[in-house]
Nucleic acid binder design. Structure first.
Lengths: 201, 201
DNA sequence: AATATTATTTATCGATCGATACAAAATTGT
DNA sequence: ACAATTTTGTATCGATCGATAAATAATATT
């Protein structure tokens, strides 16, 4: 049995994941430019040298917080499109789960990706670009899922898959703004139900 | 004939409206926190004391830029709901005009209100709140327009007007994020067409 | 021409920004 | 016990933040 590799030197005295999640919540709620190193160190209960030693820079910390958020969100949403369900049902389920996720009382409202760090100055340009890339990746994933459904005959041959994916991406991003502005869970679920009426055929 | 009131003192040497529009474009593109006084004075071609004398503060300048943006947007969109058209047609026209407005090549992409200054730190809290209030006002206006249509029998008695208004507000806000992320005019128009398929009955 | 009023330019204010230098403390390897 | 390595707390860096003081310039009023 190989012994557990023990890192030489003084051990870290804080929980790196807990600190990362504290930073995630701050970035989630206030955006990249709305959070200062001082805000972060206070919420993470560490001093700035520890932050830089553990995470590198404010930009790198935002990156890691964003990735962690995406991981948690995927865990909460699951992937309804890979379970053999009718694609319209999978879409409805995904929207419903999202409406719930966007209105959790123990977390900031809205989506860190869908409505996060939208507009930034020069300091936040990289963070905004990486966040936008995740939005585009989610939309590309929708194109794939809907394209698969079309290939299986679940959508008619004349379905414009990229436009349909863009429509649902639009709805998802709009839901995130609605949640951020204080819309409740019931309201978001009503919007999802109406949005599904645009489903083809 | 009353003579033109001449203000005493040295006259302002710059065009106040032109300076305001330069500030508007900056805030529009980068959000409240993404723009510094230095950025503003450079774009407005004035020094900071002139900015403060003419507009009061960064917050007041943002306020005025936001109001000016709203004025210009209303001018561009018109009010299709007050022209006796079928309400579905008015909605379609409004969405189409919006898709065009969000993708003007001579202006920043997206909407300064729909996706502006969403998340902010303590410095930008007021700006974010005022922007959010305009979003809510637009949604309230939608409730009124759709409610009027329902009263006129254009929408069935069981139509959930607040939810339908929330749906279209969601679409509008999502369109703004799509535009900001680089979606073209054709893509937005396709999304609008799909969104209208959710229209009741 | 003299005075009052406002705008402009230059220079700078204290506060905060993201990021680090440095030495003491805590661990592993020898 | 001692050296090597890493983290910690304190203190602070230069840059930039939003905002302003002071002196000068340009206008209207008298």
């Amino acid at each position: 049995m190989k012994p557990v590799a023990k890192r030489v030197g003084r051990p870290r005295s804080f929980d790196r994941v807990a600190a990362l999640e504290a930073a995630m919540v701050l970035f989630w709620r206030h955006g990249f430019e709305g959070v200062s190193i001082g805000d972060l160190t206070k919420a993470m209960s560490i001093n700035s040298p520890s932050l830089y030693a553990a995470f590198g820079s404010k930009n790198a910390l935002y990156d890691e917080a964003l990735s962690h958020y995406l991981f948690l969100l995927n865990e909460e949403l699951g992937n309804a499109f890979s379970q053999g369900l009718p694609v319209a049902v999978a879409m409805q389920m995904t929207l419903t789960s999202l409406a719930v996720a966007l209105t959790r009382e123990d977390m900031p409202p809205g989506c860190m990706i869908g409505a996060g760090s939208l507009r930034c100055g020069p300091n936040g340009r990289d963070a905004a670009e990486r966040t936008a890339n995740l939005r585009k990746a989610m939309q590309a994933q929708l194109v794939t899922s809907l394209g698969n459904a079309k290939a299986l005959g679940e959508l008619s041959d004349d379905t414009d898959v990229p436009s349909l994916a863009a429509y649902f991406a639009t709805v998802v991003e709009g839901l995130s703004i609605q949640a951020q502005d204080g819309a409740g869970r019931a309201e978001l679920l009503s919007v999802c139900a109406i949005a599904m009426r645009a489903w083809p055929i």
